[in-house]
Simulated assay, not measured.
Amino acid sequence: MITDLLEPQLLWPILGAIIASAVIGGEREFRSSPAGLRTHVLVGLSCCLLMLAAVHQIAWLSDALAEVIRIDPVRIAHGILTGIGFLCGGVIFREGFSVRGWKGTNR
């Protein structure tokens, strides 16, 4: 079971997601933005794992009936985008009559 998780078709996308999100998060950390390295790595890794689960679930559910399995990775991708949008919406702060948010600007 553990050896199945170390297959290159699962390991390379995970490593790629960690590296790509670490680069983006490191740049955000360098510029002292609210969402930094840890946040980006966690979001990137969780998105990667969810999409891998969506794409490979037919192989993992091989003993289930074919009529029961409904695979639609696009719906999972849509859910991930909705969740990230919800998280980004929480970055906008209201202070009195001014609103701070994206790029830390006052409006």
Results as ranks from 00 to 15, higher is better:
Glu7Tyr: 14
Arg70Ile: 12
Phe97Leu: 06
Thr105Phe: 01
Ser32Asp: 12
Ala59Ser: 15
Glu95Val: 08
Gly101Asn: 00
Ala20Glu: 03
Leu11Thr: 08
Leu81Asn: 11
Pro73Asp: 06
Leu61Tyr: 13
Leu49Thr: 10
Glu29Phe: 06
Glu7Val: 09
Arg107Met: 10
Ala53Lys: 06
Gly85Lys: 01
Pro13Glu: 01
Leu52Thr: 06
Asn106Tyr: 14
Leu87Gly: 05
Asp72Phe: 05
Arg38Ala: 09
Ile71Phe: 07
Lys103Leu: 15
Ile14Ala: 03
Gly96Phe: 01
Val41Cys: 07
Gly16Ser: 10
Ala66Leu: 07
Ala20Ser: 13
Met1Thr: 08
Val91Pro: 00
Arg38Trp: 08
Ser32Cys: 08
Ser33Gly: 07
Val91Trp: 04
Leu49Asn: 09
Leu81Val: 13
Ile2Pro: 08
Ile58Leu: 06
Leu52Tyr: 04
Leu11Pro: 01
Leu11Ser: 02
Gly101Thr: 00
Ile58Arg: 09
Trp102Cys: 01
Val23Ile: 15
Ser62His: 15
Asp72Trp: 05
Ala22Ser: 15
Gly79Asn: 05
Leu81Arg: 02
Phe86Gln: 01
Arg75Cys: 04
Ser98Lys: 07
Asn106Lys: 15
Ala22Glu: 01
Ser21Lys: 02
Arg70Asn: 11
Gly79Ala: 07
Phe93Gln: 12
Ile24Ala: 15
Ile18Tyr: 03
Arg107Ile: 15
Met1Pro: 14
Asn106Phe: 13
Ser21Gly: 06
Ala35Glu: 05
Pro8Gln: 11
Ser46Asn: 09
Asp4Thr: 07
Pro8Glu: 10
Pro34Ala: 15
Cys47Phe: 03
Ile19Thr: 13
Ser62Ile: 07
Leu42Lys: 05
Asp72Asn: 11
Ser62Lys: 13
Leu5Trp: 14
Glu95Arg: 08
Gly96Tyr: 00
Pro13Phe: 02
Gly26Asn: 09
Arg28Asn: 05
Ile84Leu: 14
Leu42Gly: 14
Trp60Tyr: 10
Val74Ser: 11
Thr39Ala: 01
Gly25Arg: 00
Asp63Ser: 12
Ile76Leu: 15
Leu61Asn: 11
Glu29Gly: 02
Asp4Cys: 05
Gly104Cys: 04
Lys103Tyr: 12
Ile84Glu: 04
Val99Ile: 14
Arg31Asp: 10
Val23Pro: 01
Ser21Glu: 03
Ile19Cys: 12
Val74Asn: 10
Leu37Glu: 02
Leu81His: 03
Gly26Tyr: 06
Thr82Phe: 13
Leu10Ser: 02
Ile19Pro: 09
Glu95Tyr: 08
Met1Arg: 14
Thr82Arg: 05
Leu15Met: 12
Gly101Ile: 00
Ala77Lys: 00
Leu11Gly: 01
Ala53Leu: 10
Leu42Pro: 13
Pro13Val: 02
Arg70Trp: 08
Leu5Glu: 08
Val43Ile: 11
Gly44Tyr: 04
Ser62Thr: 06
Thr82Gln: 08
Ile14Pro: 00
Ala17Val: 02
Phe86Tyr: 10
